[in-house]
Design a protein around this nucleic acid. Structure first.
Lengths: 204, 204
DNA sequence: ACCTGAACACCGTTCAAGT
DNA sequence: ACCTGAACACCGTTCAAGT
Protein backbone atom coordinates (compact mmCIF):
# COMPACT_ATOMS: atom_id res chain seq x y z
CA UNK A 1 0.00 0.00 0.00
CA UNK A 2 2.80 2.43 0.83
CA UNK A 3 4.49 1.58 -2.48
CA UNK A 4 1.19 2.25 -4.24
CA UNK A 5 0.90 5.61 -2.50
CA UNK A 6 4.48 6.48 -3.48
CA UNK A 7 3.64 5.81 -7.13
CA UNK A 8 0.44 7.85 -6.89
CA UNK A 9 2.34 10.79 -5.39
CA UNK A 10 4.89 10.65 -8.21
CA UNK A 11 2.67 10.06 -11.21
CA UNK A 12 -0.93 10.35 -10.08
CA UNK A 13 -3.61 7.71 -9.82
CA UNK A 14 -3.34 6.92 -13.52
CA UNK A 15 0.29 5.92 -13.04
CA UNK A 16 -0.63 3.19 -10.59
CA UNK A 17 -0.65 -0.10 -12.49
CA UNK A 18 -0.04 -3.60 -11.24
CA UNK A 19 3.04 -3.91 -13.47
CA UNK A 20 4.43 -0.60 -12.21
CA UNK A 21 3.77 -1.64 -8.63
CA UNK A 22 5.47 -5.01 -9.13
CA UNK A 23 8.47 -3.32 -10.70
CA UNK A 24 8.83 -1.12 -7.62
CA UNK A 25 8.65 -4.08 -5.22
CA UNK A 26 10.85 -6.40 -7.32
CA UNK A 27 8.06 -8.78 -8.06
CA UNK A 28 5.84 -9.76 -10.96
CA UNK A 29 2.45 -8.13 -11.35
CA UNK A 30 0.56 -11.36 -10.66
CA UNK A 31 1.99 -11.60 -7.14
CA UNK A 32 -0.60 -9.09 -5.89
CA UNK A 33 -3.48 -11.37 -6.72
CA UNK A 34 -2.51 -13.51 -3.73
CA UNK A 35 -3.33 -10.64 -1.40
CA UNK A 36 -5.94 -8.64 -3.32
CA UNK A 37 -8.84 -10.02 -5.32
CA UNK A 38 -8.44 -7.34 -7.95
CA UNK A 39 -7.06 -3.86 -8.46
CA UNK A 40 -10.11 -2.27 -6.85
CA UNK A 41 -9.14 -3.89 -3.58
CA UNK A 42 -5.73 -2.27 -3.81
CA UNK A 43 -7.41 1.07 -4.43
CA UNK A 44 -9.71 0.53 -1.46
CA UNK A 45 -6.72 -0.23 0.79
CA UNK A 46 -4.99 2.94 -0.41
CA UNK A 47 -8.12 4.98 0.23
CA UNK A 48 -8.47 3.60 3.76
CA UNK A 49 -4.82 4.34 4.50
CA UNK A 50 -5.10 7.95 3.30
CA UNK A 51 -8.37 8.62 5.11
CA UNK A 52 -6.86 7.05 8.23
CA UNK A 53 -4.16 9.74 8.15
CA UNK A 54 -6.82 12.33 8.96
CA UNK A 55 -5.54 13.86 12.19
CA UNK A 56 -8.72 14.95 13.90
CA UNK A 57 -8.23 18.04 16.08
CA UNK A 58 -9.01 17.08 19.68
CA UNK A 59 -9.33 20.39 21.46
CA UNK A 60 -10.31 23.97 20.77
CA UNK A 61 -11.56 26.98 22.77
CA UNK A 62 -15.15 26.22 21.75
CA UNK A 63 -17.17 23.59 19.91
CA UNK A 64 -17.74 25.83 16.94
CA UNK A 65 -14.00 26.42 16.67
CA UNK A 66 -13.36 22.69 17.02
CA UNK A 67 -15.82 21.99 14.22
CA UNK A 68 -14.15 24.66 12.13
CA UNK A 69 -10.73 23.08 12.78
CA UNK A 70 -12.01 19.62 11.81
CA UNK A 71 -13.38 20.89 8.51
CA UNK A 72 -10.14 22.74 7.74
CA UNK A 73 -8.21 19.53 8.36
CA UNK A 74 -10.59 17.64 6.07
CA UNK A 75 -10.06 20.31 3.42
CA UNK A 76 -6.28 20.06 3.80
CA UNK A 77 -6.37 16.25 3.64
CA UNK A 78 -8.20 16.34 0.30
CA UNK A 79 -5.96 19.08 -1.10
CA UNK A 80 -2.83 17.18 -0.12
CA UNK A 81 -4.24 13.87 -1.33
CA UNK A 82 -6.47 14.66 -4.29
CA UNK A 83 -6.58 10.93 -5.14
CA UNK A 84 -8.84 10.53 -2.12
CA UNK A 85 -11.64 12.20 -4.06
CA UNK A 86 -11.70 9.31 -6.50
CA UNK A 87 -10.93 6.65 -3.89
CA UNK A 88 -13.62 7.72 -1.42
CA UNK A 89 -16.41 5.72 -3.11
CA UNK A 90 -14.36 2.54 -2.53
CA UNK A 91 -14.42 3.13 1.22
CA UNK A 92 -17.26 1.53 3.14
CA UNK A 93 -19.81 3.88 4.65
CA UNK A 94 -19.22 2.40 8.13
CA UNK A 95 -15.45 1.99 7.93
CA UNK A 96 -13.72 3.09 11.18
CA UNK A 97 -11.59 5.54 9.21
CA UNK A 98 -14.79 7.31 8.15
CA UNK A 99 -16.70 6.93 11.41
CA UNK A 100 -13.90 8.67 13.37
CA UNK A 101 -14.47 11.81 11.33
CA UNK A 102 -18.26 11.66 11.55
CA UNK A 103 -18.06 11.05 15.30
CA UNK A 104 -15.97 14.21 15.75
CA UNK A 105 -18.30 16.32 13.60
CA UNK A 106 -21.51 15.09 15.19
CA UNK A 107 -19.95 15.46 18.64
CA UNK A 108 -19.48 19.17 18.00
CA UNK A 109 -22.97 19.57 16.54
CA UNK A 110 -24.54 17.73 19.47
CA UNK A 111 -22.75 19.86 22.08
CA UNK A 112 -23.79 22.96 20.15
CA UNK A 113 -27.39 21.97 20.79
CA UNK A 114 -28.22 21.19 17.16
CA UNK A 115 -31.07 18.70 16.77
CA UNK A 116 -30.52 15.49 14.81
CA UNK A 117 -32.28 16.67 11.69
CA UNK A 118 -30.21 19.83 11.38
CA UNK A 119 -27.08 17.93 12.38
CA UNK A 120 -27.40 15.40 9.56
CA UNK A 121 -28.22 18.14 7.08
CA UNK A 122 -25.31 20.29 8.21
CA UNK A 123 -22.77 17.48 8.34
CA UNK A 124 -23.82 16.30 4.87
CA UNK A 125 -23.42 19.73 3.36
CA UNK A 126 -20.15 20.52 5.11
CA UNK A 127 -18.78 17.34 3.54
CA UNK A 128 -20.23 18.23 0.15
CA UNK A 129 -18.66 21.70 0.29
CA UNK A 130 -15.26 20.21 1.15
CA UNK A 131 -15.54 17.66 -1.65
CA UNK A 132 -16.73 20.23 -4.15
CA UNK A 133 -13.94 22.63 -3.24
CA UNK A 134 -11.31 19.91 -3.42
CA UNK A 135 -12.61 18.66 -6.77
CA UNK A 136 -12.23 22.04 -8.46
CA UNK A 137 -8.96 22.77 -6.67
CA UNK A 138 -6.54 21.12 -9.12
CA UNK A 139 -7.79 23.39 -11.91
CA UNK A 140 -7.51 26.41 -9.57
CA UNK A 141 -4.08 25.65 -8.12
CA UNK A 142 -2.43 28.09 -10.51
CA UNK A 143 -4.73 30.86 -9.28
CA UNK A 144 -2.94 30.80 -5.94
CA UNK A 145 0.56 30.49 -7.36
CA UNK A 146 0.58 33.08 -10.13
CA UNK A 147 0.39 36.52 -8.53
CA UNK A 148 -1.20 38.17 -11.57
CA UNK A 149 -3.60 35.38 -12.43
CA UNK A 150 -6.65 37.17 -11.05
CA UNK A 151 -5.71 40.35 -12.86
CA UNK A 152 -5.42 38.34 -16.08
CA UNK A 153 -8.83 36.75 -15.59
CA UNK A 154 -10.20 40.21 -14.89
CA UNK A 155 -8.82 41.51 -18.19
CA UNK A 156 -10.26 38.51 -20.06
CA UNK A 157 -13.67 39.16 -18.51
CA UNK A 158 -13.55 42.85 -19.42
CA UNK A 159 -12.70 41.82 -22.97
CA UNK A 160 -16.01 39.95 -23.23
CA UNK A 161 -18.76 41.62 -25.32
CA UNK A 162 -20.88 43.70 -22.88
CA UNK A 163 -24.04 43.12 -24.89
CA UNK A 164 -23.82 39.33 -24.46
CA UNK A 165 -22.26 39.14 -21.00
CA UNK A 166 -23.03 42.48 -19.33
CA UNK A 167 -22.42 41.27 -15.77
CA UNK A 168 -19.30 39.21 -16.51
CA UNK A 169 -17.91 42.14 -18.49
CA UNK A 170 -18.54 44.49 -15.58
CA UNK A 171 -17.25 41.92 -13.06
CA UNK A 172 -13.85 42.00 -14.78
CA UNK A 173 -13.21 45.55 -13.66
CA UNK A 174 -11.62 45.51 -10.20
CA UNK A 175 -12.08 41.74 -10.21
CA UNK A 176 -11.79 40.78 -6.54
CA UNK A 177 -8.87 38.43 -5.88
CA UNK A 178 -9.42 35.28 -3.81
CA UNK A 179 -7.02 32.62 -2.74
CA UNK A 180 -8.54 29.14 -2.83
CA UNK A 181 -8.27 29.10 0.96
CA UNK A 182 -10.28 32.31 1.14
CA UNK A 183 -12.96 30.87 -1.10
CA UNK A 184 -13.26 27.84 1.15
CA UNK A 185 -13.27 30.04 4.23
CA UNK A 186 -16.12 32.06 2.73
CA UNK A 187 -18.24 28.97 2.11
CA UNK A 188 -17.37 27.23 5.36
CA UNK A 189 -18.20 30.30 7.46
CA UNK A 190 -21.51 30.74 5.65
CA UNK A 191 -22.51 27.15 6.40
CA UNK A 192 -21.33 27.46 10.02
CA UNK A 193 -23.27 30.70 10.43
CA UNK A 194 -26.35 28.84 9.22
CA UNK A 195 -25.99 26.43 12.15
CA UNK A 196 -25.86 29.16 14.75
CA UNK A 197 -28.73 31.17 13.35
CA UNK A 198 -30.80 28.03 13.80
CA UNK A 199 -31.83 27.45 10.22
CA UNK A 200 -33.28 24.00 9.70
CA UNK A 201 -35.56 23.40 6.73
CA UNK A 202 -35.89 26.73 5.00
CA UNK A 203 -33.45 29.37 6.23
CA UNK A 204 -35.01 31.93 3.92
CA UNK B 1 -20.63 13.55 -30.28
CA UNK B 2 -24.24 12.35 -30.00
CA UNK B 3 -23.09 8.79 -30.61
CA UNK B 4 -20.50 9.23 -27.87
CA UNK B 5 -23.18 10.51 -25.49
CA UNK B 6 -25.41 7.55 -26.36
CA UNK B 7 -22.60 5.17 -25.44
CA UNK B 8 -21.92 7.04 -22.19
CA UNK B 9 -25.60 6.89 -21.23
CA UNK B 10 -25.63 3.13 -21.86
CA UNK B 11 -22.34 2.07 -20.33
CA UNK B 12 -20.86 5.05 -18.55
CA UNK B 13 -17.77 7.08 -19.39
CA UNK B 14 -15.56 4.00 -19.11
CA UNK B 15 -17.49 2.35 -21.91
CA UNK B 16 -16.60 5.11 -24.35
CA UNK B 17 -13.69 3.88 -26.45
CA UNK B 18 -12.71 4.84 -29.96
CA UNK B 19 -13.28 1.27 -31.14
CA UNK B 20 -16.75 1.17 -29.55
CA UNK B 21 -17.57 4.55 -31.07
CA UNK B 22 -16.41 3.43 -34.50
CA UNK B 23 -18.44 0.26 -34.27
CA UNK B 24 -21.56 2.32 -33.56
CA UNK B 25 -20.97 4.62 -36.53
CA UNK B 26 -19.91 1.86 -38.92
CA UNK B 27 -16.38 3.12 -39.22
CA UNK B 28 -12.90 2.17 -38.05
CA UNK B 29 -11.53 3.70 -34.87
CA UNK B 30 -8.83 5.65 -36.68
CA UNK B 31 -11.42 7.65 -38.63
CA UNK B 32 -11.91 9.97 -35.63
CA UNK B 33 -8.35 11.17 -35.76
CA UNK B 34 -9.25 13.19 -38.83
CA UNK B 35 -11.62 15.32 -36.75
CA UNK B 36 -10.16 15.10 -33.24
CA UNK B 37 -6.51 15.30 -32.29
CA UNK B 38 -6.93 12.71 -29.55
CA UNK B 39 -9.59 11.19 -27.32
CA UNK B 40 -9.44 14.14 -24.92
CA UNK B 41 -10.80 16.36 -27.69
CA UNK B 42 -13.76 14.03 -28.07
CA UNK B 43 -14.33 14.23 -24.32
CA UNK B 44 -14.13 18.01 -24.42
CA UNK B 45 -16.70 18.15 -27.22
CA UNK B 46 -19.02 15.88 -25.23
CA UNK B 47 -18.59 18.06 -22.13
CA UNK B 48 -19.39 21.23 -24.09
CA UNK B 49 -22.49 19.62 -25.58
CA UNK B 50 -23.79 18.49 -22.18
CA UNK B 51 -23.08 21.81 -20.47
CA UNK B 52 -24.71 23.57 -23.42
CA UNK B 53 -27.94 21.71 -22.62
CA UNK B 54 -28.21 23.70 -19.39
CA UNK B 55 -31.59 25.39 -19.73
CA UNK B 56 -31.13 28.55 -17.71
CA UNK B 57 -34.36 29.74 -16.08
CA UNK B 58 -35.19 33.18 -17.48
CA UNK B 59 -37.84 34.50 -15.15
CA UNK B 60 -38.94 34.22 -11.54
CA UNK B 61 -40.96 36.28 -9.05
CA UNK B 62 -37.75 37.63 -7.52
CA UNK B 63 -34.01 37.56 -8.08
CA UNK B 64 -33.39 35.29 -5.13
CA UNK B 65 -35.94 32.82 -6.52
CA UNK B 66 -34.36 33.07 -9.95
CA UNK B 67 -30.96 32.32 -8.44
CA UNK B 68 -32.49 29.41 -6.55
CA UNK B 69 -34.03 28.08 -9.78
CA UNK B 70 -30.71 28.37 -11.63
CA UNK B 71 -28.89 26.37 -8.95
CA UNK B 72 -31.58 23.71 -8.92
CA UNK B 73 -31.24 23.38 -12.69
CA UNK B 74 -27.46 23.08 -12.32
CA UNK B 75 -27.97 20.40 -9.69
CA UNK B 76 -30.39 18.53 -11.94
CA UNK B 77 -28.01 18.77 -14.92
CA UNK B 78 -25.20 17.15 -12.95
CA UNK B 79 -27.47 14.46 -11.49
CA UNK B 80 -28.83 13.59 -14.93
CA UNK B 81 -25.37 13.74 -16.53
CA UNK B 82 -22.89 12.58 -13.89
CA UNK B 83 -20.22 12.31 -16.60
CA UNK B 84 -20.14 16.10 -16.61
CA UNK B 85 -18.36 16.03 -13.26
CA UNK B 86 -15.37 14.35 -14.87
CA UNK B 87 -15.65 16.24 -18.16
CA UNK B 88 -15.88 19.71 -16.61
CA UNK B 89 -12.09 20.16 -16.31
CA UNK B 90 -11.83 19.72 -20.09
CA UNK B 91 -14.08 22.72 -20.66
CA UNK B 92 -12.38 26.06 -21.04
CA UNK B 93 -12.93 28.57 -18.25
CA UNK B 94 -14.24 31.14 -20.72
CA UNK B 95 -16.25 28.83 -22.96
CA UNK B 96 -19.63 30.36 -23.89
CA UNK B 97 -21.40 27.28 -22.47
CA UNK B 98 -19.87 28.14 -19.08
CA UNK B 99 -20.16 31.92 -19.33
CA UNK B 100 -23.94 31.70 -19.95
CA UNK B 101 -24.35 30.12 -16.52
CA UNK B 102 -22.02 32.52 -14.75
CA UNK B 103 -23.74 35.48 -16.40
CA UNK B 104 -27.12 34.35 -15.07
CA UNK B 105 -25.78 33.78 -11.54
CA UNK B 106 -23.87 37.06 -11.33
CA UNK B 107 -26.84 38.89 -12.83
CA UNK B 108 -28.97 37.76 -9.90
CA UNK B 109 -26.29 38.59 -7.36
CA UNK B 110 -25.76 42.05 -8.86
CA UNK B 111 -29.46 42.89 -8.82
CA UNK B 112 -29.62 41.68 -5.21
CA UNK B 113 -27.12 44.39 -4.35
CA UNK B 114 -24.27 42.01 -3.51
CA UNK B 115 -20.85 43.60 -3.92
CA UNK B 116 -18.30 42.00 -6.22
CA UNK B 117 -16.26 40.39 -3.47
CA UNK B 118 -19.25 38.65 -1.91
CA UNK B 119 -20.60 37.81 -5.36
CA UNK B 120 -17.46 35.96 -6.42
CA UNK B 121 -17.28 34.16 -3.07
CA UNK B 122 -20.93 33.20 -3.18
CA UNK B 123 -20.92 32.06 -6.80
CA UNK B 124 -17.79 29.98 -6.21
CA UNK B 125 -19.27 28.22 -3.21
CA UNK B 126 -22.66 27.65 -4.79
CA UNK B 127 -20.85 25.87 -7.60
CA UNK B 128 -18.73 23.89 -5.14
CA UNK B 129 -21.80 22.79 -3.21
CA UNK B 130 -23.50 21.64 -6.42
CA UNK B 131 -20.38 19.76 -7.53
CA UNK B 132 -19.84 18.20 -4.12
CA UNK B 133 -23.45 17.10 -3.90
CA UNK B 134 -23.40 15.65 -7.40
CA UNK B 135 -20.12 13.83 -6.79
CA UNK B 136 -21.47 11.93 -3.77
CA UNK B 137 -24.86 11.40 -5.38
CA UNK B 138 -24.13 8.16 -7.27
CA UNK B 139 -23.25 6.45 -3.97
CA UNK B 140 -26.41 7.91 -2.37
CA UNK B 141 -28.83 7.13 -5.16
CA UNK B 142 -30.06 4.01 -3.36
CA UNK B 143 -30.89 6.11 -0.29
CA UNK B 144 -33.70 7.75 -2.24
CA UNK B 145 -34.95 4.59 -3.91
CA UNK B 146 -35.06 2.11 -1.03
CA UNK B 147 -37.79 3.20 1.36
CA UNK B 148 -36.21 1.54 4.40
CA UNK B 149 -32.62 2.52 3.65
CA UNK B 150 -32.48 5.26 6.29
CA UNK B 151 -33.98 2.95 8.89
CA UNK B 152 -31.34 0.36 8.01
CA UNK B 153 -28.53 2.88 8.36
CA UNK B 154 -30.04 3.95 11.66
CA UNK B 155 -29.97 0.36 12.94
CA UNK B 156 -26.36 -0.03 11.81
CA UNK B 157 -25.40 3.15 13.64
CA UNK B 158 -27.16 2.02 16.81
CA UNK B 159 -25.24 -1.26 16.56
CA UNK B 160 -21.96 0.65 16.84
CA UNK B 161 -20.14 0.41 20.20
CA UNK B 162 -21.28 3.43 22.29
CA UNK B 163 -17.92 3.70 24.05
CA UNK B 164 -16.07 4.26 20.74
CA UNK B 165 -18.72 6.16 18.79
CA UNK B 166 -21.08 7.67 21.40
CA UNK B 167 -22.59 10.29 19.10
CA UNK B 168 -22.94 8.05 16.05
CA UNK B 169 -24.52 5.38 18.24
CA UNK B 170 -27.01 7.87 19.63
CA UNK B 171 -27.62 9.38 16.18
CA UNK B 172 -28.88 6.01 14.95
CA UNK B 173 -31.97 6.20 17.18
CA UNK B 174 -34.71 8.07 15.32
CA UNK B 175 -32.20 8.68 12.52
CA UNK B 176 -33.72 11.56 10.57
CA UNK B 177 -34.49 10.60 6.97
CA UNK B 178 -33.40 12.86 4.13
CA UNK B 179 -33.88 12.55 0.42
CA UNK B 180 -30.86 13.70 -1.58
CA UNK B 181 -32.96 16.60 -2.83
CA UNK B 182 -33.68 17.62 0.75
CA UNK B 183 -29.99 17.51 1.62
CA UNK B 184 -29.21 19.78 -1.32
CA UNK B 185 -32.10 22.06 -0.42
CA UNK B 186 -30.71 22.35 3.11
CA UNK B 187 -27.25 23.35 1.90
CA UNK B 188 -28.46 25.62 -0.88
CA UNK B 189 -30.82 27.52 1.42
CA UNK B 190 -28.09 27.97 4.02
CA UNK B 191 -25.75 29.49 1.42
CA UNK B 192 -28.53 31.67 0.02
CA UNK B 193 -29.44 32.84 3.53
CA UNK B 194 -25.80 33.84 3.96
CA UNK B 195 -26.12 36.21 1.01
CA UNK B 196 -29.15 37.97 2.37
CA UNK B 197 -27.83 38.36 5.89
CA UNK B 198 -24.95 40.23 4.30
CA UNK B 199 -22.11 37.96 5.36
CA UNK B 200 -18.93 38.72 3.49
CA UNK B 201 -15.61 37.75 5.05
CA UNK B 202 -16.44 36.23 8.42
CA UNK B 203 -20.14 35.58 8.92
CA UNK B 204 -19.46 34.41 12.48
C1' DA C 1 0.57 -20.32 0.58
C1' DC C 2 3.10 -17.70 -2.58
C1' DC C 3 4.96 -16.47 -6.98
C1' DT C 4 5.83 -16.96 -12.12
C1' DG C 5 5.20 -16.97 -17.36
C1' DA C 6 2.37 -17.09 -21.12
C1' DA C 7 -1.72 -15.72 -22.99
C1' DC C 8 -6.20 -13.11 -23.71
C1' DA C 9 -9.08 -9.32 -24.55
C1' DC C 10 -8.88 -4.96 -24.28
C1' DC C 11 -6.91 0.24 -24.54
C1' DG C 12 -4.99 4.95 -27.17
C1' DT C 13 -1.94 6.18 -30.63
C1' DT C 14 1.59 6.05 -34.64
C1' DC C 15 2.61 5.20 -39.19
C1' DA C 16 2.36 3.96 -43.93
C1' DA C 17 -0.86 3.24 -47.34
C1' DG C 18 -4.81 3.86 -49.85
C1' DT C 19 -8.93 6.77 -52.18
C1' DA D 1 -9.52 15.44 -47.28
C1' DC D 2 -10.94 11.20 -45.44
C1' DC D 3 -10.51 6.45 -44.13
C1' DT D 4 -8.12 1.85 -43.50
C1' DG D 5 -4.99 -2.00 -41.68
C1' DA D 6 -1.20 -3.36 -39.24
C1' DA D 7 1.54 -2.57 -35.51
C1' DC D 8 3.17 -0.74 -30.88
C1' DA D 9 3.20 -0.08 -26.10
C1' DC D 10 0.36 -0.36 -22.77
C1' DC D 11 -3.75 -2.22 -19.52
C1' DG D 12 -6.36 -5.87 -15.92
C1' DT D 13 -7.19 -10.54 -15.54
C1' DT D 14 -7.27 -15.83 -16.33
C1' DC D 15 -5.07 -20.01 -16.22
C1' DA D 16 -1.75 -23.58 -15.71
C1' DA D 17 2.44 -24.39 -13.67
C1' DG D 18 5.83 -24.19 -10.39
C1' DT D 19 7.91 -23.92 -5.22
Amino acid sequence: VSAAIAIIKEEGLGGLTTRRLGQRLGVQQMAFYTYFRDKNEILRAVGLELLGRFEIPQAAPSDIELLRAVMWEYFRLLIDNPELLELDPYIDELAPERLRVLEAIHGCLHRLGIDKHAAVGTASNLRRLVFGTASVYPARRAWDDEADHWAKIGRELTALPPDVYPHMHELGRDFPAFTQHQVFEFGLETLLAGIISGSTEHPL
